[in-house]
Design a protein around this nucleic acid. Sequence first.
DNA 1: TTGACATCGTTGCATTTGCAACGATATTTT
DNA 2: AAAATATCGTTGCAAATGCAACGATGTCAA
Lengths: 141, 141
Amino acid sequence: MSFDLDAFLPYRLSVAATQVSRRFAARYAAEAGLSIPEWRVLAHLSRSGAVSVRDITARVNLDKSIVSRASARLEGAGYLRKSGHAGDQRLVVLDLTDSGRALMERLGRIADEFQAELLTELGDDAPAFRRALLHLAGPTD
Amino acid sequence: MSFDLDAFLPYRLSVAATQVSRRFAARYAAEAGLSIPEWRVLAHLSRSGAVSVRDITARVNLDKSIVSRASARLEGAGYLRKSGHAGDQRLVVLDLTDSGRALMERLGRIADEFQAELLTELGDDAPAFRRALLHLAGPTD
DNA sequence: TTGACATCGTTGCATTTGCAACGATATTTT
DNA sequence: AAAATATCGTTGCAAATGCAACGATGTCAA
């Protein structure tokens, strides 16, 4: 009996992730043309307050080069500011501007709506699904 | 209350998918240095037999340009052959060589092992997880 | 039959990605 | 205190990706 790709979890997981990302991106595309890294940086900053690039890199599961470039674009768009760190000169501290906070408020609503839709679709499987995802994310978190 | 990225399903899903893909890639890297598209094409061909590029594109959730390039590399490596289609000259038919079949047999074993590991890790949540993934993959399948 | 339109696979191109320097600053070791 | 190491963020570069031509073939309609 040959190998069945359709039943293979890494494959299914990847397809599902791509699909869901696309659906979500379509929602916030109307609000702002953010890339996924930009969206993650913004979302994390809105909760953490001012933090360094390295902090975000660790939290948001993206390479530091990606966070660096996403931050540069977000700065250019006026959504965040960069500043030096008092104690450690190597660090670059990121902080949302009012404009960034306002954008994130709108995006947060859209995200919450989308999340609610997903949970409805999943029904009773939602809790187990959430547990499984947390588990598979591995010891990195 | 601000938006919580860590609890956001599309994010968790994406992180989990990346993580699992990496783990799996590490397993088969020793056997053959395949990219993910190459692995998918190979895996699909091993089950479907000779089919066209378009067929694989639809089944394996990849852009046709990606399937085209993956096929070219696999052909170069001697894992598959391309041939014309009798009825429709536009089609390119792909078929595994003996070498390709042999490789896929080894990879299939590795994949099955990995899948078993994942299922063990997930425990009782596995069935719900699988259902959820199938559902989220959307009506495309 | 001829012409308009659709489909197939490949290729070109701009963008994104991941990784490995790199300069600048901190920390640790001797 | 000096020297060796480590860490931070940016940048360069090669490879991968997504999308839109494109040539070639097929199909459909007038």
